[in-house]
Amino acid sequence: MRSLEVCKCSKTQAWYLFLVLVVITTLSFTGRVVYLSLGEGYGISLDPSCKPRRHVVFLKTHKTASSTILNILYRYGEARNLTFALPFFDHLGYPQLFKARYVKDFERNPSKEYNIICNHMRFNLPEVRKVMPNQSVYFTILRNPDQVAESSFSYYHDVTPAFREAKSLDRFASRPSTYYSPSAADNHYARNLMWFDLGGDHNAQGDPSYVNSTLQALERAFDLVLLAEYFDESLVLLREALCWPIEDMAYFRLNARLRLSVAPLAPAASSKLRQWNSLDWSLYSRFNRSFWERVARYGAVRMERDVSQLREIRRRLGATCLRGDAPAGAAETVPAEIRPPSFGTAKILGYVLRQDLTGPTRELCTRMVLPESRYLSLLQRKQALIKLPHNMENRL
C-alpha cells in the first residue's frame, strides 16, 4: 500500500522528490576521494572488528582549538550525509544550560535520529540524552587554563565587563574580584570558563567534595577528553575511539590568532590566575593525567608513528590546497567567503587557497579553511533543503 500511496503523489510532489535526490547527490561532499589519494601509503590500519561510530557528542569548549575539531566533524558528517543536531542560529542556547528544545526541529520531531551534535552549548547531560542515542561517543577538549584566560581576554574583551574594566590581563589578574561581578552578563568568560562550559558552577569556592563529585560525573559522562597542547596525539586517540580513518583527522588550524596578538602572562599574573581559575585547574589536572594514561595504553612507539603519518597527510594537503606554507592574516585571505571574522583585539589567521584548484579537490580545500559560522550556515541550508514537507511525510 505504501508504494500505491507514493504513486498518488502530485506531479509537484514527485518533482520535489527528484530535486531532493539531486540536492543530496550534488551537495554530498566528495573529499574522501582526495583524502585517499593524498594519504596513499600513509593510512593507519584499523582494527577490522571495529565499526565507524556514527553518533557523536562533542562538547565544544571555548578557546581550546575546538573550532578545528568542529571542522573535522562537519566534514566527516557532510561527506556521509549524517544528520547534525544544529542550532536555530549560531549556538545551542549558550550560555544557558543546554535544553533539547535548543536543537532546531527537535520539538517538531522528537523521535528524529541525530548523528552528531557539536556546536557551542553548556553541557547538560540529561537534556543531551534526549537528543542523542545511548550508544553515542562523548568527547571534549581542554587547554592549559592560563592560555584559556589569555585567549579569552583577547577574544571577549569587548563583551566581558570584568575585562573591559581591567584594561589589561595583568591588571585583571592582580585584583580579579575588584573587576568581577558574578551576576554581570558575559562575565563567565572571565572565570573558570571550561568548568562553566562543562555545566559546573564557575563561581563555586572550590569545596573539595563538590569539585571531586563534579569531576567524577564528568569522567562517567565523557569517553575521551583531548588536550589542545597535544593536538595531534589527541586526534590519534580520537580516531581510535571513533574508528574513523586517519585521513578524516587531517586539518588546518582554524580561529587561531596571529602571534603578535598573543600576550604571554607574567609569572606573578599566572600565579594569581591559578588561584582565580582553581576549578579549571582541577579539571585540567585530572584529565591531563587520564590523557597520558590513555597515551601509555596506546603505546609510545605506535603513537609516534601515527602522529607522524597524520602530519604527513596534513603536509600533503597543505601543499595541495594552500598558497604558501603558513596561514595568513585575515585581510590577505581570498576569496571573501573564507575570510575569518575578527573578535575583540584578536587578529585571526586565515588561509590563501591555490588558484588552480578544481572539482573535489577545491571542494575539500575550501571546507578545510571555511570559518565555522559559514560552514554552519551551509549545513543549515543543506539540511533544510532535504526536509520533506508535512503533507509528503504523511504520504511516504
Rank of each mutant, 00 (worst) to 15 (best):
F163P: 01
K130D: 01
L169W: 07
F106P: 07
F106H: 11
F139I: 06
Y138I: 09
Y102Q: 06
V137H: 08
K99H: 03
R122S: 07
Y156E: 11
R122Y: 14
R164P: 03
S151M: 07
R129Y: 15
R101Y: 05
H120T: 13
Y102D: 13
Y94P: 00
N119R: 11
Q135N: 15
V148T: 09
D146V: 09
Y155S: 02
Y138Q: 01
L142T: 10
S151R: 08
N134F: 08
F163A: 03
H120C: 11
F139G: 10
Y138C: 06
A149Q: 07
Q135L: 05
V128E: 05
V137Y: 12
V159T: 06
S111Y: 10
R108P: 00
N124F: 11
R101T: 07
A149N: 04
L92K: 02
V128N: 02
Q96N: 04
V103E: 02
Y114H: 06
P145W: 08
Q135I: 11
L92T: 01
N144K: 07
V128P: 04
N134T: 06
A100N: 01
V131G: 04
C118S: 10
Y102C: 08
V137F: 14
F139T: 04
P110F: 11
F98D: 00
G93I: 03
S136V: 12
K99T: 00
L125H: 13
S111I: 12
Y94W: 09
H120M: 15
V148M: 09
F163C: 04
K112A: 15
I116Q: 03
R108N: 08
D170P: 10
I116E: 08
P133M: 13
M132I: 04
R122F: 13
Y114V: 13
K104L: 06
D146R: 08
A162Q: 07
P145N: 10
Y138D: 04
D146T: 12
C118F: 11
M132S: 11
Y138G: 06
P126M: 09
Q135Y: 12
D170N: 15
F163G: 02
A166T: 02
N144Q: 12
F163E: 01
H157M: 07
K104G: 00
R108G: 01
D146W: 15
C118W: 09
Y94R: 00
A149E: 04
E165C: 14
